[in-house]
Computed example of a mutant assay.
Amino acid sequence: MESAYPGMKVFLANNLMMAYNQAEAAQPVFAFVEDGFTKLPEFEMMMALFSAMDTRWVSVMDRQGSTPARKSSPLLDVGAGIFELTKADHPSQFAQYFDMMVKAPRRSVRSAPRTANGRPAAAAGGNRKLILIGSSTGGVEALRSILVGFPFDCPPTLIVQHTGKNFGSGLVSLLDRICPAKVRPAEDGVSLEPGHVYVAAGQRRHMGLSSRKPLRLRMKEGPDISGHTPSVDALFTSAVPYGKDVVATILTGMGQDGARGLLELRKAGAKTFAQDEKSSVVYGMPRVAWDMGAAQQQVSLTRMAGTLLQASKA
């Protein structure tokens, strides 16, 4: 590639963490990814970063006849990079694919009115509640889809996303890149403020709410709850005393984390939602929540941001 394109800068990475950090810093136009990497759960973060930067990518198979990861992964099946090369292909084929993908039309980036601090201008306000979100497999892209529609002055929003232990900070910076509100990692004792999104991901502590007002984040060590740390159930259950002030949803993901807590929230007067089957990468957590009556309504991903914001004003 370097000899075919004089002046091109090529980065090499032998693990996903290195690849993620290099991509975030260099913002490459294209990436060749060994297919084995795409089978790792954390590759969801890589895909979301590529999407945010409009980086084109293709998976590279070990040999002809290998079964690509996308054949068994619902996440890859709906994402980019669905064509494969193999390590035995001639370099000219790599160059040809690179040319084709890089020269394809790139999407336009929408611009928003900016304030002096670089954030988009505030939207009209309304009655403030708390928004709670739980997600797992496929959730990174779902969160991007939702948070890009949140205004600068959105209600305090708390998110638990199941992800690898080394990718929490990357998720925060990724979401902060596209969200008009300020996205920050969940930290113990932090006061909840409008215009802020607090993310618990890749940590060994559960996120919850303090037992008295003014509300603060409470980060607590402990065993897995519903199979996870941090746990969506832990967050939802901690918010039950403030149920009437809560809007909560469960997004795409495997398992049942969050369903029990969402049911408790609904009984306490919260407005509760679940992502619908059609727009879910994995219809596991939302299905359990819906089947047990924890969610009042199923909502498509394209309508989720508006639904949550509208519910927080009612």
Rank of each mutant, 00 (worst) to 15 (best):
A200K: 06
E187T: 09
E187C: 02
L171K: 01
F167D: 08
L192A: 06
L171H: 01
E193Y: 00
A186M: 04
I178L: 02
P194W: 09
L158I: 08
H196N: 14
P180D: 08
N166I: 05
G195Q: 11
V160T: 15
S169V: 06
S169M: 05
S210F: 00
V183S: 05
R177D: 09
R184P: 07
S169W: 05
H196A: 13
A186G: 06
P185Y: 02
A186I: 01
L158S: 05
K165P: 01
V183A: 06
N166S: 15
L158F: 12
E187V: 09
L192W: 06
A201W: 04
Y198M: 03
V197A: 10
S173E: 15
R204F: 07
A201Q: 03
R205I: 00
P194R: 13
K182F: 11
P180M: 10
F167V: 00
D188N: 15
D176V: 11
A201R: 02
A200P: 05
R177C: 10
G168K: 09
L192P: 02
Y198S: 04
F167A: 10
A186F: 05
C179V: 13
S191W: 03
L158A: 09
G202R: 04
H196K: 13
R205N: 00
S191F: 12
Q161P: 01
V183Q: 02
R205A: 05
S210W: 01
A186P: 02
K182R: 15
Q203G: 01
Y198F: 09
T163P: 07
V183M: 01
S191C: 12
